[in-house]
Amino acid sequence: MTRPSAPLLEAHHVGRRFGDRTALEAVDVSLGSGDSVALVGSNGAGKSTLLAVLAGALAPTSGRIVHAAPDRQIGWVPQRPALYSRLTALENLEHFGRLERVRKPAARARELLDAVEIASDPVPAGVLSGGNQQRLNLAIAMLVDPDILLLDEPTSSLDPRQRRRFWQIAEVLPQRGGALAFATQHLSEVDAHASHVVLLEAGRRVFAGTLAAWNASSALESLA
């Protein structure tokens, strides 16, 4: 994938195996400043694994990840909310804020709760709706005020209004010089929010290019 923007995060020939199963095989991806990259592909294509490897949550078994700008923060929103179900939303944000060495975790937590429109009720996060849990998931990733945000099917459990609100928050990053990468099954989201597209099939990259190139290519048919 070539682009004029400066790369922030790159995957070079990244591969990942789980026992005998190959989840990723020699995949190259580059996230540049201002990019919004959509990762598409069928279930099991390797989208989640690629995002986890880019986030540093999973070590690649081959290839390497290059942080072109090591001072840039990375936020990761896994597909299934990664939070403590018996802590409240506020406690979750405060806890992860402390671990992320956020300067004023309590204040930052309240700020983000307001931003994602979740009430600071003293109820465990586990009893929040799926949509609210997903927004809390996003808020935790936003604690470090990331420059790069990696989103794994982030809107799958959100209603249309929540989706709009979600993208309003997420799309700020590319606009201010950061980068966004999101895995999605919804082609409408690709058209609406991506500047670049990467198509994965059985762990291999079969397409990488701009949105215009994607729309013009026949790769789209492989998803039909």
Binding site: A52, A55, G56, A57, L58, W76, P78, R80, P81, A82, L83, Y84, S85, F96, L99, E100, I140
Partner: peptide, 13 residues
């Protein structure tokens, strides 16, 4: 179970 290991082990802890 809480799916937080990935979040923790990517540099936080």
């Amino acid at each position: 179970d809480e799916n937080v290991l990935g979040r923790l082990l990517r540099g936080l802890v």
